[in-house]
Design a protein around this nucleic acid. Structure first.
Lengths: 339, 339
DNA sequence: TTTATCTACGCAAACGTTTACGATATCCGG
DNA sequence: CCGGATATCGTAAACGTTTGCGTAGATAAA
């Protein structure tokens, strides 16, 4: 369509295609007068190189892919902000793929991505993924990969995560110190590394406080919010002794609030709630929500940095480049000790 | 890198590249036995066609671009959900570009996009854009474009928007009926169509209620949240008579809450607040927030539908294909009449 | 048997770039 | 005046795919 290409420029300038191409790349093999002529006409005709021809020839796409469970979540949208920021600065384009926590979709997406469409990938694994052969096949195919937050241990590459064990411990300890004795744990996937870490932190804190671990207080959430609210409501009804909730993901915190509201349980008097969340309005909730907040923006930036550095230097990414950033606990009313 | 391409398949099967290519496209010119042989080997070697070679040859990229101000905003993240859903179903890939409401970035991005990287674009214009020549140049270059929410009137194409005039009117009327007499209006851009529409609705509602329009009560927000909160705080301090706030965008609602909290103004007793928002936790805020909620997910889906239909049928998109979806007003505590 | 039709496949050009290699002209030291 | 640098440019191949065209063989129609 846009027929202003190298050939067109070359014809109008009485030059060869090669010279025009080199001029636009500021090659030393082209005289400065010629460069000026070429640049002038290119600007005048609004020439823009064909990205696909260039990618095909150079085997470089200047594009990275981001595979995440969802975008309607403050953690991931902030992470995307960081990723896009870094990518833009380096002249990279960003493809987005959403798995909706669904294993099948993740498989389909990884299959797509083996066509060499991207130079590198940032992945946060879907909670629905029980096994990772699709990721291993993808990894074997070519591109540089960095995992963030939801990691895949089976693949030897860098991961950018937070101190999930510690955070799980601290959150649980925080609830216990506020007076809770029956702490429920809501998580999204027990077979993902991140879920296991937080779970272990939760269990360790219970043990250190001399509280027995009760697996009926562990609830595995779904992708659907209404289902989650119903699940939590059921648990709270059948277990009236629950006086604390530690939610491992933002969506489950919201559902917990709604469940308490529906059952008329007062927060924090009847039930105290703490949760992982990047919700900007946490302090404006009724009551304000005690959160463990991950540095989502920084995670995105760091992960993108590692990836782009590796791509530019054509080096393999090593597990030793992994980064662990610290989450922060913001204490608010939802876990306030009563009387 | 991944050297399993058509040539490789052709060699191993003793066929020509052309036949292999046609077999994989299920062409009628290939016998079914041959198709089977080809498909079997392709599956075994995990062949995936090179996207760039294909795009170059066919002049079709199977990729659409989404240009939006920010992603950390429930309206846009829900819209992306809708877009990605539709795109995935049709086998399209989604490139994301964030303008951060910045004119310069928008110009740079549109320049990029003229390289034929995408078959079509979904755009929501940055509030910082004062003029639209970059968009006109982009439009002249080639791709199909559909605007959503933040529209550019200068370009003759389809727009997917909401009933912004009506919503502005209803929101203002709602505040007045709740007892407000001094209603401030916080918006993000007065020179964008969407801002003007809501503003006109606001003014019309004031006029119909016999309230004089006071332009010192109109505040134009910035991209930075802290600046906004400071601006609003200043206004509330210098104008203690303000008893209602109509915020045109989610971020400004949050800032309004924070400003009121800082000044000790009670909501809804001292100041009533209504705002455009897709915040899922609106009902959990203190006090719960009365919102005008746009069908963000549907907007994304519809915009993507129009775009993809046009691309597939190679037809020009007409302004007559524009769609106006209705926003909904959810009444909650923040605008409750007092006594 | 000849001619026309159809099936199944190969040849080669094209998409727009990049780049290894070669060619020409100029210049300079010996 | 000759040999070799040096500067500047062109030729052509390559990236992997798609596709118009040609063609060999088989089958059917005349």
């Amino acid at each position: 369509m846009n027929s202003v290409n190298l050939k067109r420029l070359a014809q109008e300038l009485n030059l060869s295609i090669a010279t025009v191409s080199r001029a636009l790349q500021d090659s030393y093999e082209v005289s400065s007068q010629t460069k000026e002529r070429v640049r002038a006409l290119a600007a005048e005709l609004n020439y823009e190189p064909n990205a696909y021809a260039s990618s095909l020839r150079r085997n470089i796409s200047k594009t990275i892919g981001v595979v995440i469970p969802e975008v309607n979540n403050h953690f991931f949208s902030l992470a995307i902000n960081g990723i896009e920021e870094v990518a833009r600065q380096s002249g990279y384009h960003v493809l987005i793929y959403l798995t909706h926590e669904d294993y099948e979709r993740e498989v389909a997406i990884t299959q797509y991505l083996m066509g060499g469409r991207v130079d590198g990938l940032l992945i946060s694994v879907a909670s629905g993924s029980q096994e990772f052969s699709h990721l291993e096949k993808l990894y074997a195919s070519k591109p540089a990969i960095v995992f963030f937050d939801r990691v895949c241990d089976a693949i030897q590459t860098a991961n950018v995560t937070t101190n999930d064990y510690e955070s799980g411990y601290l959150a649980t300890q925080h609830l216990i110190e506020a007076g809770c004795t029956r702490v429920a744990h809501l998580l999204v996937s027990g077979n993902l590394s991140i879920g296991r870490m937080r779970m272990q932190g939760y269990q360790a804190a219970l043990q250190d406080a001399g509280i027995e671990f009760d697996e009926t207080l562990v609830l595995e959430g779904d992708a659907d919010d209404e289902t989650n609210t119903a699940l939590i409501t059921d648990m709270l009804r059948s277990r009236p002794d629950v006086d604390g909730i530690f939610a491992s993901v933002e969506r489950l915190v919201i559902s917990s609030y709604q469940a308490c509201q529906a059952l008329g349980r007062a927060i924090p008097q009847d039930v105290k709630i703490i949760g992982f969340s990047n919700l900007g309005v946490a302090s404006l909730l009724a009551p304000s929500l005690t959160t463990i907040t991950q540095p989502a923006y920084e995670i995105g930036k760091e992960a993108a940095n590692i990836l782009l550095k590796a791509i530019e230097k054509k080096k393999v990414i090593l597990p030793s480049q992994s980064l662990v950033l610290k989450s922060e606990l913001f204490q608010r009313k939802s876990t306030e000790p009563c009387r």
